[in-house]
């Protein structure tokens, strides 16, 4: 497994990264952990002519909490998210999600920024980030902007990120009653279906619930129909069942060797129920 030839540059600042990319043109690509890009390059499915390593740029690592928002630098690895005290306390569902990505070695290298930028349909983060109301922070030579995760994932390996933008951080509001449930592909451990749930319960009533689904369709989505069934309810079993049968919405479900569309639809419901149960327990 040998990649095409490429030029390798290390950016020591974000500005330098942008200028390197502008010199490289369309054939340039940023790399951080490389756990999406390197496998694709080895298989010659990706052939950037210039790799610009952004992993050494200061200021994109670390997890901080301020004013009810957790800020996770784009270079933070899945293992760091999974083990972060801040995240475990303030958004346990996200730590839970990061802890089931790939395997231990992958989690030690893969980064949240690279993961969301790659937008693999079976990736875990997108479902969780949508559910937890995350914001994706982007920077380019043109400036910075923020997009709600809900609007970020737009298609198969496609996002609202423009060429030349870097995912510098992901901001997640504190959501203590959050959870993620996943049915992994038994071979690859990607999500066949992954469902994130952020819950706000008051006096046994669901004041609000946000549901994000990944793995099921060509990109992660927010399951608003199910949310509306559950909002204002006491999460009784029949409501959860109704929400579970609605969670695939009218999306076109993926169909592969592991799960046909109907089985996937069913799994969406099962994972929703499991995520709700966990989130409720945490509320």
């Amino acid at each position: 497994m040998i990649a095409y030839k490429f030029d390798y540059k290390v950016a020591n600042s974000i500005e330098e990264a942008f200028s390197m990319l502008s010199s490289a043109g369309d054939a340039g690509s940023f790399i951080s952990g490389g756990h999406s890009l390197v496998p694709a390059m080895k298989l010659r499915l990706a052939e950037p002519e210039t790799l610009i390593d952004i992993s050494k740029i200061p200021g994109m690592s670390g997890v901080a909490i301020e004013d009810g928002f957790i800020t996770i630098g784009g270079l933070v690895t899945h293992a760091e998210v999974a083990s972060s005290y801040i995240i475990k306390e303030s958004c346990p569902g996200l730590a839970e999600c990061a802890g089931v990505i790939g395997d231990a070695q992958v989690r030690n290298k893969g980064t949240i920024g690279g993961n969301v930028a790659h937008a693999d349909p079976g990736s875990d983060y997108p479902g969780a980030l949508i559910a937890f109301g995350a914001t994706i922070c982007l920077s380019s030579s043109e400036g910075s902007r923020e997009i709600a995760a809900e609007n970020f994932f737009t298609g198969l390996f496609d996002t609202a990120k423009e060429q030349g933008e870097i995912v510098t951080a992901v901001k997640v509001p504190v959501a203590s009653s959050s959870a993620y449930a996943k049915f992994p592909n038994p071979a690859s451990r990607y999500a066949v279906v992954g469902v994130g749930v952020a819950l706000n319960m008051e006096n046994s009533t669901c004041q609000s619930i946000i549901i994000g689904v990944t793995g099921a369709a060509d990109h992660a989505y927010r399951a608003k129909e199910s949310e509306s069934i559950l909002n204002g309810s006491e999460l009784e079993e029949n409501n959860i069942e109704k929400a579970a049968s609605a969670v695939s919405e009218s999306k076109e479900m993926m169909n592969d060797l592991v799960a046909s569309a109907d089985y996937r639809t069913h799994l969406c419901g099962v994972m929703l129920k499991r995520a709700i149960a966990k989130a409720k327990y945490r509320s």
């Binding site: 990649a3 390197v38 496998p39 790799l51 030690n108 290298k109 071979a187």
Partner: peptide, 23 residues
């Protein structure tokens, strides 16, 4: 060749990683 088997695991700065999935 798919970052699956783990035979290539090493420690990089103290953490286990798959050395086949890095240049």
């Amino acid at each position: 060749d798919t970052s699956s088997c783990g035979s290539c695991t090493i420690h990089l700065d103290g953490k286990a990683m798959k050395s086949c999935t890095m240049f």
